[in-house]
Amino acid sequence: MGAPDEDRFARLVHEHSGAVGNYLRRRLYPLSPSDLDDLVEETMIVVWRRIDSVPTDAELPWMLGVARNVLRNARRAKNRRSAVESRLAPAPDDASAEEHVIADESMRHALASLPDDDREILLLNAWDGLDTHALGVYFVISTNAAAVRLSRAQHRFRELLNETQVR
């Protein structure tokens, strides 16, 4: 590895470690800060080893794809995978109206009812800010396919939300 690689790696770490950490936190929640640091570092080790493979036009989604695999490894290691996987944070305490709390519960229920693939792409877009091009890089599919999948997920989510609110 030469200095340019090191410089690029340092830039990637500084620019994207926050997004990678947030990605991991969202999906392994709650998690201690030290565990989170370890998982971020594990992701960055892979990034360093494969620095030549990081696409210049899609660095973050590529790195999140690495983080996804790190999560898979972590989950394979777990006895009870359900405990530390992402759970939605409790509704903010400042919810001023009961209606707001109910609305949040509707969201939780709708999310829970979504197929896994739909939920993953929906939250990658809503929480991690990946657009359709980035989603394509993340899932290793075409932008068009990513766009269609996202659209499906949004559509199903809206329908589930409506069902929940009608109940």
């Binding site: 947030n22 936190r25 939605l88 903010p92 999310l111 939250l123 809503a126």
Partner: peptide, 14 residues
């Protein structure tokens, strides 16, 4: 959805 983001209120700080 963004309001439910677990990382929104406590973003990761390396």
């Amino acid at each position: 959805l963004a309001a439910l983001d677990p990382a929104a209120h406590s973003p990761y700080e390396a």
